[in-house]
Amino acid sequence: MDKLLQIEWMKIKNYRTFIILGLFFVLGVVTTNYIVYSVNKNVVGEINTAGLVPSFNPYSFDNTWQTTSYVTGFLLVLPVLLLIILITNEYTFRTNRQNIIDGLSRQQFISVKLMMAFIMAVICTLLVILTGLTFAAFSGSSFSLNKFSHVGFFFLKSLSYFMLAVMLSVWVRRTGFAIGIFFIYMGAENIVSQLLDVWSMKIKRDTGLDLGSMGDYLPMNASDGLLTFPDNPLKTITKSVMPTEYTWLILILAIVYLAGFVIFSRKFFIKRDL
């Protein structure tokens, strides 16, 4: 795998799109978190001077883990874009064929792409940890690893996103197509998910049956649903009408979907003509 990763690195290290999108992502993570940080400090904080609700800082420990994970989650589309471009490029340049002709096995080719997706998820997660720590350092609160599980949820979410990107890329093979399908699917799933959530609330109100937020049982929302903005004191009031979050169920589903993406990526690449 070492050798295969070195080959992948040779392919991308001088690729301008890779460098630019990578930089955009890092800058985006820092700026977006900074915007949320400063809005909370300067806008929400100011309004709340009356002290109607207890003060709340999303970037103090332990909230920082949850907040950075949640906020950074929105920016995962950038590495998704990058990953789709990198993989569909192989089809555009027909280098996927040439790599096999030159002596990679099909298994090796797809495995190293999946490994790249995994490494990207690790890097994004490290970035979340670093950002979380940095912003929390300004909050004056003392270090804590409570709610660090959200960083784990973020890792799962980035894995899901990236493995879906790999699967879409080897499935449809064309850059524009793959990116288009990714965004259309995300949009469609979000709409369906919200409808399902409302339906869950209705069922709970009418029958008392608590099925959980069913919207979170869909492939991308499973890993999304685990990441939420820290509950500010106002939000707890609405909680009683909301269905329960069955974290364990969503977690299992997220892992099942993830496995599905990996299995289908391999299947698509290994079985089909290139």
Binding site: K3, Q6, I7, M10, K11, N14, Y15, R16, N89, F93, R94, T95, R97, Q98, N99, I101, D102, G103, L104
Partner: peptide, 23 residues
């Protein structure tokens, strides 16, 4: 096979290095 397949954004030498590494 059929067409020359290389990474468009890399030079001849870089492309051959990748091929050599695979082989």
């Amino acid at each position: 096979l059929e067409t020359p397949n290389f990474y468009h954004y890399l030079s001849a030498v870089e492309n051959l290095r990748i091929a050599a590494a695979i082989k």
